[in-house]
């Protein structure tokens, strides 16, 4: 006489079978697993990445502020917050040049955020508030960059001092009718750049992409200025010469070459320093 199978035993076999199938489906490495972007290659802590890209930004800002705006104003080139308006024959002020670059970075799909703010900004919309205001106070006191995590947006954040690097910074801010502070001096911390990135470490490949996106932003910003300058009633000659030589503007290639000459050595050096912190994830 055939024995009736044990129902409880059959259920256990059935469940074991289901788990086995699900296990094979989920854990057998066929097909190839999707790339885990945080595990590929060596990694650099995000603080180092911020320091590297902030140094790039300092080089670009100094070049534009001193060599384009500073000398440019002396030879009759105009710079204005209304530079985008068709009837205004002017280029972007340094803060707006940075904003142009930041907008371009956003379009690059590299999730690097860049903002410029102050506790005494000309445009009130650039006034620091909440966590940034607190961090900015700490930065003023210590002169050290600030690094923190912003949980609601899940972003790593860094703030670096933005200094009055050229006499033009001081005079423009002290003489601007909307400026809330009129006693700026050369070398003062006038504000801070705020950077954000979604990860706490980046791969070397991502580091290169980030630098590339930043430099792309600088190029886009300068090209936008050249495009506007070409529409002036008296357009400056664009070529090898700079405003310190007269009513000239360097071409995009000349500007970029000088920017790279100033920034690349320092960037390579910082990456090599970061190399001592590189590690292969477990």
């Amino acid at each position: 006489m055939a024995q009736i199978p044990n129902v409880k035993h059959s259920k256990s076999i059935l469940w074991a079978g289901i788990f086995l199938v699900v296990g094979i489906y989920l854990f057998a490495q066929r097909p190839t697993p999707l790339v885990d972007s945080e595990s590929a290659g060596r990694v650099i802590p995000v603080e180092k990445m911020f320091r590297i890209v902030a140094a790039e930004n300092n080089a670009a800002r100094e070049l534009y502020t001193k060599n384009i705006v500073g000398y440019g104003m002396k030879v009759g080139l105009g710079f204005s917050e209304k530079w985008r308006e068709a009837d205004v024959a002017a280029g972007p002020l340094p803060a707006l040049f940075l904003r142009e670059a930041a907008t371009s970075i956003q379009k690059s799909r590299i999730p690097l955020g860049l903002f410029l703010g102050s506790d005494f900004p000309i445009a009130r919309s650039n006034n620091f508030g909440s966590a940034q205001a607190e961090r900015f106070k700490m930065m003023r006191a210590s002169s050290k960059p600030q690094f923190f995590y912003s949980p609601d947006i899940k972003l790593q954040v860094a703030m670096f001092a933005d200094l009055a690097v050229a006499p033009g910074c001081v005079t423009c801010h002290n003489e601007h009718p909307k400026s809330p502070k009129v006693d700026w001096k050369l070398g003062d911390i006038m504000g801070a750049t705020t950077w954000s990135y979604p990860k706490d470490k980046v791969t070397l490949e991502e580091m290169v992409q980030i630098i590339s996106a930043y430099r792309g932003g600088v190029v886009d910003a300068y090209e936008a200025y050249l495009a506007k300058a070409a529409k002036f009633s008296k357009p400056p000659e664009v070529g090898d010469r700079w405003p310190e030589d007269g009513y000239f503007l360097p071409s995009k290639d000349v500007f970029v070459k000088e920017f790279e000459r100033r920034a690349s050595g320092n960037t390579i050096s910082l990456i090599l320093q970061a190399n001592s912190l590189l590690k292969v994830p477990d």
């Binding site: 930041a102 956003q106 903002f115 620091f128 909440s130 912003s150 947006i153 705020t194």
Partner: peptide, 14 residues
């Protein structure tokens, strides 16, 4: 621009 609001100070608006 929407990316501008990714600055920490816009926490309340976000």
């Amino acid at each position: 621009p929407v990316h501008r609001f990714l600055e920490p100070r816009f926490k309340e608006a976000r």
